[in-house]
Simulated assay, not measured.
Amino acid sequence: MNSDLDRNGEEKASFQNRETPSQALSMVPTSVTLSAEQFERLYLTRMTCQRPKLAKQVGNPTPLALGGFVITTTPLSCCLMAWRGASGNGVAFIGPIVFLGGLLLLITSILEFILGNTFPCVVFGTIGGFWFAFAASMIPSFNAAAPYSPSATDTIAGLSSPGFMTTYAFLFITMAVLMLIFMICATRTNIVYTLIFLSLLVVFLLLSSAYWQLAEGDASVGDRCVKGAGASLFVASLLGFYLLIVQLFEALEFPFQLPVGDLAVLWTDESHNNKSGDSRRYDEDLAAIGDDRSV
């Protein structure tokens, strides 16, 4: 009996000894603390409010929206500039506009809302909604442009009719005003993000001018405005590619950082040093992000 107890005791002790290295390994902290600049690179929003706990457990959805944005805007900009004879003002890209532009941005907007990122939520939601509306205007089953055609059934003819162009230009004007608001708000983040909205502002202004000129029969000026809008959209897509690379490099913790031009220094004042209670609690939550991420 004693020998059995001794043997069991020895086996239990040896089992505990075998567990010790594993337990010790699980207690080793591997924390990653985000600085203010890193946070704003990843989430494209300022550190102004307390983050929900869910933000510490899920990934960053912003690169998903940037990927959908660049995949949609790049070929559309080439089409507007009529490279290699491209034409149709985006009719050929109805599928990508719906499923890559609108859908991905809408999904990202919902995820940003869950994470409490108000500004990216509004940006991706409205731009994604615009892509849906733009594609719907070109889909015959929606019958948006067909009533403007001579036969009242031809969507392609309706898209190029003076009545449709004159009316649709007001949507571009409204989007330009929205891009201006986004550009002003983006000055709280970085230069790249701000330049994207500046480029989009020029895009919508030129498209509205092009539609009004084409509606009046001035094809020469209208075509130049369309090509100018395509060039500005191409610049926005390149900036989107760059920002996407920056965010993916940050997410994968590459040993170097690409510059984005932090604009936080423009908004630094005395009130920034005297933080409110919510800001202090948020800083504490941000510093504790690494404590929740252990092997």
Rank of each mutant, 00 (worst) to 15 (best):
D4W: 05
L5P: 03
E10I: 07
K12V: 10
Q23D: 14
Q23H: 15
L25E: 14
M27N: 13
P29H: 14
L34T: 13
L42Y: 12
T48Q: 05
T48V: 14
P52G: 02
K53P: 00
L66R: 00
V70D: 00
T72N: 06
T72I: 10
T73I: 04
P75C: 08
C79W: 03
C79L: 06
M81T: 01
A82W: 08
A82V: 09
W83S: 10
F99A: 11
G102N: 06
L104P: 06
E112A: 09
P120D: 08
C121V: 05
G128R: 01
F132E: 10
F132S: 09
F134A: 01
P140A: 10
N143M: 08
P150K: 12
S160N: 10
V177N: 13
L178Y: 09
M179W: 01
I184L: 14
C185P: 00
C185E: 03
V202S: 04
S208W: 05
Y211F: 13
D223L: 10
R224T: 04
S232R: 02
S232Y: 04
L239M: 07
G240R: 00
L243A: 06
L243C: 04
V246N: 05
F254W: 15
F256A: 04
Q257G: 06
V265E: 11
W267R: 11
N273K: 11
R280Y: 04
D283A: 11
L286I: 06
A287C: 06
A287D: 11
I289H: 12
R293Q: 09
S294I: 14
